[in-house]
Design a binder for these strands. Sequence first.
DNA 1: GGATATCGTTCTAAATACAGAACGATGGTT
DNA 2: AACCATCGTTCTGTATTTAGAACGATATCC
Lengths: 304, 304
Amino acid sequence: MDLNHAYYFVHVVEKQGFSAAARTLGIPKSRISRQVKNLEASLGTRLLNRDSRHMSLTEAGEAYYRHAKRALDCMVAAETAVRRDKDALEGTVTLSCSVGVAQFALGRVLPRFLADNPRVILQIQASNDFSDLISDGIDLAIRGHFKLLPDSGLIHRRITEVPWHLFTSPSIAQQFGPLSSPADLDGLPGLALGWRPGGNSWSLQGPDGANASVPFATRMRSDDMVTLKQAATAGLGVVALPVYTCTEDVAAGRLSRLLPEWNAGSPEISLLMHGKRGNPPQVDALAAFLRRELPDIMNGVGGL
Amino acid sequence: MDLNHAYYFVHVVEKQGFSAAARTLGIPKSRISRQVKNLEASLGTRLLNRDSRHMSLTEAGEAYYRHAKRALDCMVAAETAVRRDKDALEGTVTLSCSVGVAQFALGRVLPRFLADNPRVILQIQASNDFSDLISDGIDLAIRGHFKLLPDSGLIHRRITEVPWHLFTSPSIAQQFGPLSSPADLDGLPGLALGWRPGGNSWSLQGPDGANASVPFATRMRSDDMVTLKQAATAGLGVVALPVYTCTEDVAAGRLSRLLPEWNAGSPEISLLMHGKRGNPPQVDALAAFLRRELPDIMNGVGGL
DNA sequence: GGATATCGTTCTAAATACAGAACGATGGTT
DNA sequence: AACCATCGTTCTGTATTTAGAACGATATCC
């Protein structure tokens, strides 16, 4: 069985001539003539009626062409499948970020990235306590910061600003009525982020560049945002959290925002990656994906 | 694009080894090794992981194999289609027979022959008046006869005997009650076959070699059996007809058989064809088909 | 009617693939 | 541990296919 006969034959049929097929394939017409002749000899029947000016398929030729065309299409698909497979992303990406970013931001976008790239493996270090911007073994880091990060030889890519708001349970909000200024927070218990002592006041920015600093009595503190959010939902006090971590709770009526015209800060979120050595393609692909998808989710503009 | 690479590769996969594939294909393993190596080189990726004892497909290899296997199946189908097409019957067969044979016998079997042989064309000369056994331009003839046909240089092939019975309408049968002998037909009007005057009596053969000749007063005559059958169904008289022309009418209760133990003759049906020159294959094929299918339909043994 | 362009087919020196031998590697047997 | 059988890969003199030229046939143009 010589399958290449079929290849030439199909081209002769589709180009309606040996010379045209030869030009298209960039080969001498003598080769095509020989191949088609050999094909007809091996089958013991004529596939083409032709002279120097006319050409038509025999019935046998039409039958053969239909099957052979399908075979060639399968072969093209075979090569395409291999080339696509060869160029597909694969390998591991190690990502470091806070628990909040992992659960409330990445959790909404990474499944899609992984679905599109089945041979990429993600390793996420989710922590509430980073001493390094990015340590060894980490490909990408997502960090929130108020000031410019120190020059570290890393590549910084800004993702977005993330506003923090004040939230509490609807029952407390109802009990104290609508607050009109930060001074109205006086006396309300606070839920503090961070497990070490300190951070007992809210730094607020309001309309027309106004600033306010409001101390609070800490009822509970934790470095885990979910724990603090659960406490606020239970009516234990007021908490300042990034807006994207509470979007669903506010929509569901489990939390209420206090002082809607005041922010409890607006830190910037950046993506950090190594730059001194070339990154594997899957790392670059994930970085591009996150910079494209995260802004709408984390700055509070995007909806559910 | 070299399709033969795929051919060897598919066999290697299915036989799980180069040596096994080479043995199956009856070619040296060096050729297969070279072909698969060239295939991997042209695709720029490995399809098989192998050493001298183990073999497994890579992911790319699995993808390529699925498509290539389908392509090879198409190529097998292409060759099969051409070989079947090459061996298929084609051409015209001209057949001569009576209208009754055409309508009541051939009509039940020829559709199947034509379905199996879509490139055979049938031309049927159906007539009630043949002066020749078989004239020029006719490939096959079906003729009924009582005596041996004259020696004509034609090939005779006996199909079967066809009994003729007496039929009339159920109303007449009821009116005269069950007849017990041919003498009881006296006074019943007859419907005669043939349009020329003559043939005004029934020649009957009964049990134990008994014979009887019963004259009848002819109410109507025709050379068309259907016309006579319609007249009998309408109660105009008694008619003698071949059993196979009335099978459905008797089953449906439109006709009744008279004197069930008596035949109105039992002529032989033969197939005539030219023998001096070789017949085209489609003529021989139809002759064999008719000799196989017609007996059960025409001798009254076969059912509906 | 003659000249020209293009077709498919055939021929032949040159290029390439091939069959079979030889090699290194692996696993089973003793 | 040594030996043997079988595997896939590589090498090379031989066999086959190839590219390009030449040919006969056909249709178009002048």
